[in-house]
Design a protein around this nucleic acid. Sequence first.
DNA 1: ATACACCTTGACGCAACGTCAAGGTCAACA
DNA 2: TGTTGACCTTGACGTTGCGTCAAGGTGTAT
Lengths: 249, 249
Amino acid sequence: MEYTIKQVAKLSGVTQRALRHYEQVGLLSPRRKSGSGYRIYGKEDLVRLQQILFYRELNLGLSTIKSICLDPDFDLESALTEQKRLLQEKRDQLDRLLLTLEHTLQERKGERMMTDQERFEGFKRQLVEENEKQYGKEVRERYGKETAQRANAQMMGMDESAYNEFTALGEKLLEKLSEAAKLGDPTSVSAMEVARMHKRWLGYTWGEYSAEAHRNLVQMYVDDERFASYYQGNAEFLRDAVHHFLDNN
Amino acid sequence: MEYTIKQVAKLSGVTQRALRHYEQVGLLSPRRKSGSGYRIYGKEDLVRLQQILFYRELNLGLSTIKSICLDPDFDLESALTEQKRLLQEKRDQLDRLLLTLEHTLQERKGERMMTDQERFEGFKRQLVEENEKQYGKEVRERYGKETAQRANAQMMGMDESAYNEFTALGEKLLEKLSEAAKLGDPTSVSAMEVARMHKRWLGYTWGEYSAEAHRNLVQMYVDDERFASYYQGNAEFLRDAVHHFLDNN
DNA sequence: ATACACCTTGACGCAACGTCAAGGTCAACA
DNA sequence: TGTTGACCTTGACGTTGCGTCAAGGTGTAT
């Protein structure tokens, strides 16, 4: 089943402009384009769009959503479970707000006194949550990499040994990266080795490989704090190395 | 009890920048400024801020909130009741979303099939609601002017006869306005009379009068559809008349 | 062949702030 | 009395997530 942009817009309630915008920022690209350049979306794109909307409902920024969805550890089922928890939290929050409102009404009628703090109960908590969400710490910490990775591996049809290779490669990558980074030259031979390893590592989860996506991903490692810290401050080095690697094919 | 901007920010969870912004757009001005220009907020300002936050939670734009709060017919108690209803609606919406999420999870586990429409149930309804809210039709229609006006009058300490004068003046204003508008000249003598009447009319509800607020208000009559229609297409004329009136003191 | 609804890519606009920058204020403490 | 340090001020430019044209290509139906 394929859909034009108008059909997707009508189906999802998202405007055409928004869909184009999502493509521009690399968040949701149609599965293909017609001969004359028309966008053609597929079922997978609808699933992705739904994900985007759920996250947006939780007030995540598009760039944050992007990094979540492009993360090799992304697993739809864990994501849905997490979204459920967060949406429930949001609903509870709304309930607190309604309580505050009720109190304010009572105060108005002279049936109750309110302190200044009480007047803003239900608004403030939100801010803390938003911050936590922005950096997605909760999302990450709640499921150790292990679970999500395994789920993902299964979905990609890896067997136990392939999975072990995958994780081993991931660890080795981290090692080699910090070694190479110490030398400081992202064009060095060892840096190129790291870049090649990274590409191989992505191969385990990335059905099809594209240099552009690879470039974007490592750029994201730099932009997104979570990745940056996962790569222990070597995200920039990794980016430069991979870019240089890809430049020289 | 008075508060500096920092205290208000801490109390409410709103940033200082946002508070300054609210002042800039004429939404929330501190009750006074200290000798050295420091913003000093009072209890009334906190109540107003709470109102703003409730409306923001409902995704109303600042300009819409402004017109609601500056409306001579604004009544806190009706507003709170209405907010309660809308927030409850929003919570129900969240529940629908959670249902969709649950269905998607089940689909993932192969326990259920989903149509494309179902996948976006709970998102789309939102759009319609947002539109209705934007123009605040519900908010207005739910309480005829009568109720709110009476409540407001009571709060301002008007007695029955003052209230009658107030409403009579309001009606006469509409009449004279449309008469004057027919002539087309907003600087005419009859236009100036209308402007003076409008000022007098505001006097009933405005505690203290300020020319700037008056200018803003009539500008809003033009910008906001609801007022524009209340003044039967003569909002622009009224604005020009009042501005000219104020220019010539 | 022309009408019509659809699509494309710019490019500018806008709301609601975030984020400096440059400088004034004020209570406290040496 | 001078000097921190925390607070405040007013610009002014930046960012996000689109909305809203504008100018033009596409596709099918009559």
